[in-house]
Design a protein around this nucleic acid. Structure first.
Lengths: 214, 214
DNA sequence: AATTAGATAGTTATCAATTACTATCTTTTA
DNA sequence: TAAAAGATAGTAATTGATAACTATCTAATT
């Protein structure tokens, strides 16, 4: 044990950050809808009422969590695509980075999905939607660039390709959630992407599956 | 108005069926986890307590719903693939039948996803899992058959192809749930499948996208 | 000393489940 | 075949548990 001093009183912003992380951690094993404020508090060694010193209500906590997810995930995939000259290679890098992120934070996609399922447009859902939109935009740029430079088929249905890209990840996530095995996802990801790539790339680009990032 | 006599007292089995349908209908617009027994009862013009004359508890209702979904969905896709000689065409037919089913019963995938998200293995989750397994088996047969007859690439990663097939549908469903537009899904499905097909088929089979069922 | 963070002990609302009673069918039998 | 008896389905009100949220008191930090 690492003599981990646990200060009783944290500054407000610190406490908010810790709260968000607690929710993400809980969401890894608990259905987001079933996460209670009491459970959150317990997980961070706090009393339930104390949470409301830092958040006006539960919805505000959810909002903060969605912000956390959107910020971190987008940062990851942006960094993954950064400086990669080939659009197709960038897409591959984004794909794998996304999968890695999810395998590190299994609670993140569950919060996302859980929120998006809701019928009424809660603030948290708006954030989730905005992120998905931003994601789709990034993808469309890459797809168009890929067409322009001849890596992707000229007659490729861009919208369908974007839908399939996101859907593929969501599918992998779902399978992992079902089996509870996040490692399998990382192993499956490259194999699944290979098929996707074959579906969108021009013939001459088929062989170069493993083009690395560096 | 078709002088639709609404008998006050239904026989037990009838009432159970009506209950399941009510849940599916509610799940089309409400997060499954938020569906209360009171809401179910109200939707079918019944009092809340009466439900427990036909089901021992809420979990039993959920179980019945999952059975309904599994039975109907599997029947649909089996029928879709039935009598289709080409494995690839059968897969396409399954894909579209699945999408059609979901667009007719948007509540069905929501119940499934909602159930699969849960951490603890409730009876309803077991049913959901069993269905997914059965689905994957059907797919594997088709994929192997496709390889055997030369429609699918010999070196195709079967497991990845199956994962991608299911994931693609889940992705389409997710997008539709987000936009709330189930019609878009039916329009997107053929375009998305076309890319998938390009990813798994042998070159010579590429052109014959529209091979029909009859 | 004053401000901020946390603990304790509530309140209110809602949900699944139960209970005591009533209405409506179905079967028996005189 | 008509009335009585039993079975089945439904109602309305209530209960116990649990949820989010709040008010008041106490301890820590600066």
């Amino acid at each position: 044990m690492t003599t981990h001093t646990r200060p009783k009183n944290l500054p407000a912003e610190e406490r908010r950050n810790v709260t968000v992380e607690a929710v993400i951690e809980l969401a890894a094993t608990t259905n987001p809808g079933d996460i209670t404020t009491a459970a959150i508090a317990k997980h961070m060694h706090l009393t339930q009422g104390a949470l409301f010193r830092h958040f006006p209500n539960k919805e505000a906590i959810w909002q903060a969590v969605m912000k956390w997810v959107a910020k971190r995930l987008m940062a990851r995939i942006d960094k993954a695509a950064e400086g990669v000259e080939s659009p197709l290679a960038a897409m591959r890098s984004m794909f794998l980075a996304h999968v890695t992120f999810v395998s590190e934070h299994p609670g993140a996609p569950r919060m996302l999905f859980g929120e998006l399922q809701g019928a009424k447009p809660t603030p948290a859902k708006r954030l989730a939607r905005a992120m998905m939109k931003q994601y789709a935009e990034r993808l469309n740029h890459l797809i168009e660039a890929g067409k322009a430079c001849g890596e992707l088929a000229e007659d490729l249905d861009s919208q369908a390709a974007a839908t399939l890209f996101i859907g593929t990840i969501q599918g992998l996530v779902m399978q992992s959630l079902m089996s509870g095995d996040m490692e399998r996802m990382r192993a499956d990801a490259p194999r699944v992407f290979a098929i996707y790539q074959r579906g969108i790339a021009t013939k001459q680009d088929m062989a170069e599956t493993g083009r690395t990032t560096s």
